[in-house]
Design a protein around this nucleic acid. Sequence first.
DNA 1: TCTTCTTACACCTTTGAATCGT
DNA 2: AACGATTCAAAGGTGTAAGAAG
Length: 852
Amino acid sequence: MLGVEMYPSLALGPQRRSDCCYRDEAPAHVLAPRLPPAAETSGTPQNQVRMELENAAMWKQFSTVGTEMIVTKKGRRMFPQLRVKLSGLNPSLRYILLLDIVPVDSSRYRFQDSSWQVVGGAEARLPDRVFIHPDSPATGEHWQNRTISFHRAKLTNNTLDAQGYIILHSLHRYQPRVHVIEARDVLMWGRAQHSFIFPETQFITVTAYQNSKITELKINSNPFAKGFRENGMNCKKQREARLKRKVTSGQEESLDIESCDPCDSTELLPQSVEIPSSALSMINTALPMTDSGFHTEVPSLPDQTVSDRPLVLGQAFLSSEIPSSMESQQQTASENNVNNTLMDGSGQMMGLSGYSSAFPTPQLSSSLPQSSSIYSVVSSTQSSDLELPPSSTTYTSMPPSDYPGLNTSTTMPSSTTSPPGSSYPPISPHLLPSSSYHALLPTDQSQDNLSPHTPTNPPFQSIPPSSCQGSGLMIDPGRNQVDDGGLGSNATTPAVQNPNQTAFPFPPVQSSNDPDPSSPPCQSLSFPPVPQCNSIPTPSDPNTTPTAFPFPPTAQSTPNSIMTASNPNPTLFSFHHIQQNPSLSLSTSGPAHTPAAGSFPVSQSSSIPTVPNPVYPTTGSFFFPSTNVSHQGPMQSVSNVLHATAAYAVPSFPAPKHSAPAPLPNPAHTSYPHPLQSLTLPSSSSIHSVPAIPNTTQIQSAFPQSFPNPSFPHIPAQMANPTQIPSQTFPPIQSSQLLSQFNPASTHPQCPSSSNAYPAVAPSEIGSFSQLNSAAPYLPDVVLHPSLLPSLDSSLSSSAPPSLYNPFPSYSLRLCQDPRSSLHLPIRHIYRQPQHAHAQGSYFDLGARAVF
DNA sequence: TCTTCTTACACCTTTGAATCGT
DNA sequence: AACGATTCAAAGGTGTAAGAAG
């Protein structure tokens, strides 16, 4: 293992920075050196990045029935696991892999009549959290040499979750997304982003399984549920027998046991093996069942990869340093076995050509105009721009229709041809964006633009002074399940040692305890300037009914946040605040329905800070496939953010297409300088630039017309377009100021400065997350881990009033390092981790609350 | 009354440390 | 002493059922 001892320099490095530092904070000298010019990065093979869903067959099986995922307070893992394979990465560059889960639509579901049906509007979007693969950052070689599993990611329905798990609402439909972000270290994200969506991985969250078929599939497929198999000791027979025993005397017990008969090992084996096939058969039969469901057939089914545009990776950094040796590990051997068997079966059953999902399409879908438009757009763009390799994984190529609901089919390419009865309701547009993402992402521009969700720090590169050279992530080979040979070496992982980092100023904006993470605090408060926000209750807003929510989180500009370069001066930190522009969402959401829509007339342009942000000069030109302004709008927001970052990072970047330069700081925002906010949020109203990771909501917003669906009573929070939120930069704030976060009023003064203040460090650098807002699903805020700021924490905790949340539109992003990560990261030491040992992997808490 | 969620339970797998053998 | 294989116990992951909450 690489230990701090071995690589002292690495010890605190990256993570701390990420946690706490914004570039501003980080010493200028630190960051600059290693960051390669954007130009350098260009030319990297990023555009060729491909992702394959390894256990696609299993997912398809579940999808045909209607995948359900249990969510519990304590957190529940996903099954099937999300296992993917990556290719096309630059072996020498390092990447961070993120998993986030976004709502597919704005509906709430109920299992009735053997099918999932829409029964109402979705609840306010919860703070987005991102699960960082424990091996992150690792070299492209590392990722490509092994199966990448996100099995350690946990889902919870506890809105107050302090573990950093991904918080989801029960009975809602979600779409997992995987993001590949080029990054030097955890703190330095950047430049290239690639997002991938696999339509078949959509699922509905439940607290208890509704569909017996799903239960059966899970039991048959999940090794941990072995006991519930027919032969298992926990099967019905056995359980009944046990009950009898309890009630009756011991005599009966023996009898019962015999009757159960179960465990014939021989029988078991075959069964287990066959399970998949049986499951398949079930599925087949079930398909019809899914009345509500829609079958999304994905022709190739494959994973839909969103290819990115060719990114100009400026980042050459580290490549040389990074050792290439990587071990391909089997993260889940057992599972694999199971999966394999299942897959085989599934392959037969399913008909790989396509898969149908059992999810009922939401009514929305009907309302949605043509999802295809979006989808197609995306794909087209991708193809053209991105030059995607014909990887099976890419969904983009796939026809849109699969998800009826989603015209945006773009998001769900695989499902393009969903039968009317497809189990999955149409995917809401916002999802699409994500898919579109893939296509969009990429390239240089993408670099600049960070996906809203993922904190990206593209700027790093550009930013010379504060660059986190030392981000030193420590890799602990010993730990790694997967070897990353090179990673262990210092070279591979640049460790930034910033003593100061520990002192990070960022207090968690909100305590993890916050009651309602879901509610974005602030939309109203934080962005007073934005009419929408104020007028319209944000979904996040506790007061407002989620359903009523016209603008979900998007309105909130959650600060994206991110990871700033370490700030030498703990007390001071700067952050960029980006607001999302609700306007897009509004438009998309069907303004008609929600009054809010009216209230959020904000045009992208309007929402977008037209104001040129000096900070974000330009960024790569990233264009949307769809030229529509509306489309662009959402994207733009993202892009804006990215641009901002890019601007910092890569001066050389081509000017963004956007008419508007970088996202302008929103005066309102400025007024509320939440540290988190400071993190760059892409706001973007500006259209042109495309954030690396498109937010589905954004996408939707982009195609508002396409989703005029009257059926939606409420504008899905998702609909809210993060992009709309203008990103703002905040000047460094002193610790004392941080406290002010809680108190909006106090903060205001700072805001102004912040907006422009940060020229030096682009928020994007830090990483902007548009997701954070519930409304704007994909503008996550990055929250520094409080632990980093001990002093602050204490002070904050005591001082910070709950009310503070309101002011901040954006959610802070919290980064937790997984203790078990194959790569030993110093971060974990730095961050206060939840005691839970299990949580493996890192989570970014995009939500308003800090998780502590 | 119905739906949804929480909790306890038993079974199972996984993981890590300890032990043993080479 | 070093390395690998085996064993063991603890931790954690599962779905189920009962009960609680709304």
